[in-house]
């Protein structure tokens, strides 16, 4: 089975005043078309850097090594002009902070339309119609009226929907969502997750969902890789990980989750030095072989 995305031995370094920071080390994973995968880890585990690296957005002070093969083409070391073609149309990114991600001085309609006009060469009229349609698709009520509003006039949840609308405007094959719900209320969170699943179903696009929250990961993904200290420490099907965690870090992560224990006294903080433990891979026979069916977990 050929995968949509195949990451092999991804390594990212940052050069800082204190020295070289090894942000990501030896990360490898495959993703098939239509699949949804979660990358779970705490802050500093390298999960966000990994998602940025997929689009070549690591920046001036970072150094990327390894292979990122998307639709048969390795994106590492590719010139910026080619990366631009892939961004938005092949792989798209949704950021955590939706207020920050939207330009405060342009209307949301203008920002969505711009993508279509500039990347696809559409006319103003046609782009506006599609922008309207996209806003409705992501569930923004009164889209006709709100298309002329500015980002600061929307609530957090609405803004995130707009960001999603912008991300899917070019119908990408892969959507990477970097903690898109972390800053939102729980109820809004559920709606966004529902939206993402619906969009996936409609378009068949793959999803990489980055989060620190295992419970959220469980709601949205079928597969999961757990990152700690820049490395992948465990990978497998979501249910397997939950029921039979093998790596000490995964176990600690689960034990630290308030939803998993009976009393707060049973909560355990995650010990510091768990990356020394060797990463654990799911045995080959447990990895999915074909398109994954929906796993309903209460959405």
């Amino acid at each position: 089975m050929s995968s949509l995305l195949s990451v092999t031995d991804l390594e990212v370094d940052f050069h800082t005043v204190q020295g070289r920071v090894e942000a990501v080390r030896g990360v490898s994973f495959d993703l098939a078309a239509g699949e949804s995968m979660a990358i779970v880890g705490e802050s500093g585990s390298g999960k966000s850097v990994t998602s940025l690296a997929l689009l070549g957005l690591v920046g001036e002070v970072g150094e990327v090594r390894g292979r990122i093969v998307f639709q048969g083409r390795d994106l590492v070391g590719v010139p910026e002009a080619e990366l631009r073609d892939v961004r938005g149309a092949g792989v798209s990114l949704v950021f955590q902070d939706s207020l920050d991600a939207l330009n405060p001085v342009y209307t949301v309609g203008a920002q969505i339309s711009e993508i279509l006009r500039v990347r696809l060469g559409w006319s103003r009229q046609r782009a506006r119609e599609e922008a309207l349609h996209l806003m409705q698709q992501v569930g923004i009520p009164d889209a006709h009226k709100r298309i002329g509003n500015y980002p600061h006039q929307f609530s957090g949840g609405m803004r995130q929907r707009i960001c999603i609308a912008m991300a899917i405007a070019l119908k990408p094959k892969l959507l990477v969502a970097d903690e898109p719900t972390t800053a939102l209320d729980v109820t809004v969170q559920a709606e966004i997750l529902r939206l993402l699943r619906a969009l996936q179903r409609e378009s068949g696009m793959s999803l990489i969902f980055v989060t620190h929250d295992l419970a959220v990961a469980r709601l949205i993904a079928t597969r999961i890789i757990v990152m700690h200290g820049g490395r992948v420490v465990e990978r497998g099907l979501i249910d397997d990980i939950f029921d039979r965690p093998r790596h000490p870090y995964t176990k600690a992560l689960l034990a630290a989750h308030p939803g998993r224990v009976a009393s707060w006294k049973d909560l355990r903080p995650i010990p510091e030095n768990l990356t020394d433990e060797a990463p654990v891979d799911a045995p080959a026979d447990q990895l999915p072989k074909g398109p994954v069916e929906e796993i309903a977990h209460g959405i």
Binding site: T16, V17, Q18, G19, R20, V21, E22, A23, G44, S45, G229, G230, E272, N273, T275, D276
Partner: peptide, 20 residues
């Protein structure tokens, strides 16, 4: 290694101790 230990420090010396 914990997250902070992933920083590779350069060799020690006078100039390293006085970054400014």
């Amino acid at each position: 290694m914990s997250n902070t230990e992933r920083i590779v420090r350069e060799e020690d010396g006078f100039l390293t101790r006085h970054p400014k």
